[in-house]
């Protein structure tokens, strides 16, 4: 137990450093940021993600082209001055749709991640902290969900509730929380028996307060890593179900549904198949690299 950090002592140490000299306190976050800066793949990934998110946030405002405007006379054209990346089968501008599609795909990925991480943290925290029957019941449920082929469950749910952005996001979120729950449970099991938790209990802190104010902050690094990897997974899942025509439906573009007809026009307009696919691959790859880099930076013990 000697190695577990104690918040009060850490604060004293930080204060001492602040008194002694200009050297900044070596907090976990500063150390992690420095480790991350020394990881080229993770930094390239981060730069790419910043660019894509900026494009998704302000791109539609900067680009005057209407992504919904169809023009049968201009279908399946290649690059031109008005349409830098050409047009799709009904003459809509591919660049404008890619940018709006970025907004849709990234938003679905982010919100689905928030749902799955919140659920995973809640389940894992209760199972790990409460132990006993709560642990048994919740972990059996987690195992059962883990054993199911996610895509079949998602299809069954979409069959019942219909497609659309909201349903797709919720369903993806509700089928991706299990790995988070397992990690968080492990951490809560570990921190539950530490001295600072005993101390908090001794001064009368309630269970809820101990879980949220004392243990949860220790788990934040693991949650950040899980969240990053979860966004990658959610974007990939959204693209798959939208490709099948069951997630986001046209005319609203998403990177997945833009590929829906790419197979048909693969002869006449291979560019339609290339752009959305490359964007999905690079974005998901970047999230995975960033997640891996964060894991190394925040917790070197977890390094494979």
């Amino acid at each position: 137990m000697a190695s577990t950090p104690r918040p009060a002592e850490a604060r004293v140490a930080a204060a001492a450093v602040a008194l002694v000299g200009p050297e900044p306190a070596r907090t976990l976050w500063r150390i992690a940021a420095r480790r991350l800066r020394r990881n080229p793949p993770a930094m390239i990934a981060l730069a790419f993600l910043v660019a894509v998110h900026l494009a998704a946030a302000i791109g539609p405002a900067l680009l005057p082209t209407d992504p919904f405007l169809t023009n049968p006379l201009l279908s399946l054209r290649g690059s031109s001055a008005e349409h830098p990346l050409g047009t799709d089968e009904v003459g809509r501008d591919v660049l404008a749709r890619l940018i709006l599609g970025a907004r849709v795909s990234l938003a679905v990925g982010f919100v689905a991640m928030v749902i799955s991480v919140s659920l995973g943290v809640a389940v894992g925290a209760i199972a790990g902290y409460a132990g006993r029957w709560e642990d048994v019941v919740l972990m059996r449920l987690t195992d059962a969900m883990m054993a199911l082929p996610t895509l079949f469950v998602i299809l069954a749910a979409l069959a019942v509730f219909g497609g659309g952005p909201v349903t797709a996001t919720v369903v993806i979120g509700l089928t991706a929380w299990m790995p988070v729950a397992r990690v968080v449970r492990g951490e809560f099991l570990r921190w539950r028996v530490t001295e600072f938790v005993d101390a908090a209990r001794a001064i009368g802190a309630r269970d809820g307060r101990i879980m949220v104010r004392h243990i949860l902050p220790q788990v934040v690094p693991s949650i950040i890593v899980a969240a990053t990897l979860n966004v990658a997974f959610a974007i990939l899942t959204e693209s798959a179900i939208s490709y099948l025509g069951l997630g986001i439906r046209p005319p609203l573009p998403s990177w997945g549904n833009m590929l829906q007809n790419a197979q048909i026009y693969i002869w006449s307009a291979p560019n339609l198949a290339v752009y959305p696919g490359v964007l999905i691959l690079c974005t998901v790859l970047a999230y995975n690299f960033l997640g891996d880099g964060l894991r190394d930076a925040l917790d070197p013990r977890l390094k494979l």
């Binding site: 590929l259 197979q263 291979p270 198949a273 696919g277 691959l281 998901v284 995975n288």
Partner: peptide, 22 residues
């Protein structure tokens, strides 16, 4: 292996069809 985790399966399939079939 990172590429493998990140590539959308359906898109990978389209690429393979483009190369090996078309």
């Amino acid at each position: 292996s990172f590429i493998g985790v990140s590539i959308p399966a359906f898109w990978f399939a389209i690429l393979l069809i483009l190369v090996f079939t078309v």
